[in-house]
């Protein structure tokens, strides 16, 4: 018992010492996750709308994008953007994208494919009668979309969207492999410096758990609120 207590105090002292490192890692993780979620959501919604309303060729192109993006593992996407896309960008502009930017782009591509599918599913799941009723009372196409279809589709999407936000947070750990100094890198550095491994990894698990489970609970809360009616 005393041994456990002393190793706990030793660990807490170590965490205090590594505090600036851990905090800056956490900020990087949050930055990457939030930017990837925002970008992924924006493009995902656009692609989802294209899948529903686009012409034949546009639909096919977006469908291929979505299927390819979903078929490639997240880590391979990150490496591909980091090595391949970066090479193309360098040749075209002479500018080298930072590892962080590459990671955000890759995570955003991943999220956009998921969100595009979700959006398509949610809109197509609505009964045809909804838009027909809108037409019958004389609404324009735009009015039908914004006042009839979207408000209902968004309720469908929100809970799953929140889950994919959690997946993005999980995905940010992959950025450690292209040496973005995010939270997992900070944990590894702190663990090696203080030579305390088990406790630091357990600490990291708790932190990630709180973030990701928190997002999940938030999603459930939204779901409960929207299903009240």
């Amino acid at each position: 018992m005393t041994e456990l207590l002393s190793s706990l105090t030793e660990f807490l002292v170590a965490v205090r010492g590594a505090q600036p490192l851990l905090l800056s890692g956490l900020v990087k993780t949050a930055e990457a996750a939030i930017l990837a979620i925002l970008l992924g959501t924006a493009f995902g919604l656009i692609f989802g709308l294209m899948l529903v309303y686009g012409g034949k060729i546009l639909r096919l192109a977006v469908k291929i994008y979505v299927d390819v993006a979903r078929g490639i593992p997240g880590l391979v996407k990150i490496f591909t953007v980091y090595y391949l896309v970066n090479q193309l960008v360098i040749e075209a502009t002479g500018y080298r994208m930072s590892a962080m930017l590459c990671g955000i782009i890759a995570l955003a591509i991943h999220a956009s494919a998921q969100i595009a599918e979700m959006t398509r599913g949610a809109i197509q799941a609505l009964p045809r009668g909804q838009s027909e009723a809108g037409k019958a009372i004389g609404l324009t196409f735009g009015q039908i979309q914004f006042n009839v279809i979207f408000p209902q589709a968004i309720r469908q999407i929100l809970p799953t969207w929140v889950t994919s936000a959690g997946e993005v947070v999980k995905g940010t750990t992959l950025l450690s492999l292209i040496s973005v100094p995010e939270f997992f890198v900070a944990i590894k550095e702190a663990a090696a410096r203080e030579y305390i491994f088990f406790s630091f990894y357990l600490f990291a698990m708790l932190v990630y758990f709180v973030i990701i489970y928190g997002i999940e609970l938030f999603g459930r809360h939204l779901e409960a609120r929207f299903n009240k009616y």
Binding site: V169, K170, L174, L177, F184, K188, Y201, I212
Partner: peptide, 9 residues
């Protein structure tokens, strides 16, 4: 609710 990479390491 864990990142699998963390578990692997």
């Amino acid at each position: 609710n864990q990142p699998p990479l963390l578990l692997l390491f």
